[in-house]
């Protein structure tokens, strides 16, 4: 039931948005085709503008992850986090989440498969995945698209939001299930 409702929403929303905008544009006597191509022209430059920012960020993240520094970090912080009641299995995923969306999703899939989709660890990792974002990727893409390099407090804000999401995932799952 839920799946079919979701499918309908998924399949209909994008065509519906496009239809609504184009039809309303015509009604407002906009030269819709001309407007579309004018806007679309920016697609190329925008995507190309992002390249240097994303190359820089993904390269640094790749070096860090492949070096084994992550495992070292986990060894250092896990005694503290386990005292706080955080299952040690979810720590690697929580740490990778702001750096790599694909990496975190892979780890989540692994945790859910190994421990069971309705286990405490499975549920925590799933809620973590849904309530946080790949902060470094988002910042690289969005600031990259407009060429902003002085990001001021953007990273602290993004990481605090991630930390809140990760912490709340554990608390909420432990209370609810």
């Amino acid at each position: 039931m839920f799946d079919s409702v979701m499918n309908v929403i998924n399949n209909f929303s994008i065509p519906f948005i496009i239809l609504a905008f184009v039809a309303f544009g015509l009604y407002k006597k906009v030269n819709v085709y001309e407007s579309f191509t004018t806007g679309a022209k920016e697609g190329f430059t925008t995507a190309v503008n992002i390249i240097p920012f994303l190359v820089g960020m993904l390269m640094a993240i790749g070096i860090f992850r492949a070096s084994g520094a992550m495992e070292l970090l986990i060894k250092i912080i896990s005694p503290v986090t386990s005292k706080l009641g955080v299952p040690s299995e979810v720590i690697p995923m929580a740490l990778i989440r702001p750096l790599s969306g694909g990496g975190a999703q892979g780890m989540m899939t692994d945790l859910v498969t190994t421990h069971g989709a309705q286990s405490m660890i499975g549920r925590i990792s799933a809620v973590m995945m849904g309530s946080t974002e790949t902060t470094f990727y988002v910042l690289a893409v969005y600031f990259g698209s407009i060429g902003v390099t002085k990001q001021r407090h953007a990273i602290p804000v993004g990481l605090l939001a991630d930390l809140a999401g990760l912490t709340m995932s554990i608390i909420v799952v432990k209370i609810l299930f």
């Binding site: 184009v22 309303f24 579309f36 191509t37 697609g43 190329f44 925008t46 390249i51």
Partner: peptide, 21 residues
């Protein structure tokens, strides 16, 4: 980044219509 070009162009085009309307 390059993979974004198509979808980016499409939505920026649609959004331009939305903006002008």
């Amino acid at each position: 980044s390059l993979g974004l070009i198509g979808v980016m162009a499409m939505w920026l085009g649609i959004l331009k219509i939305a903006e002008e309307a």
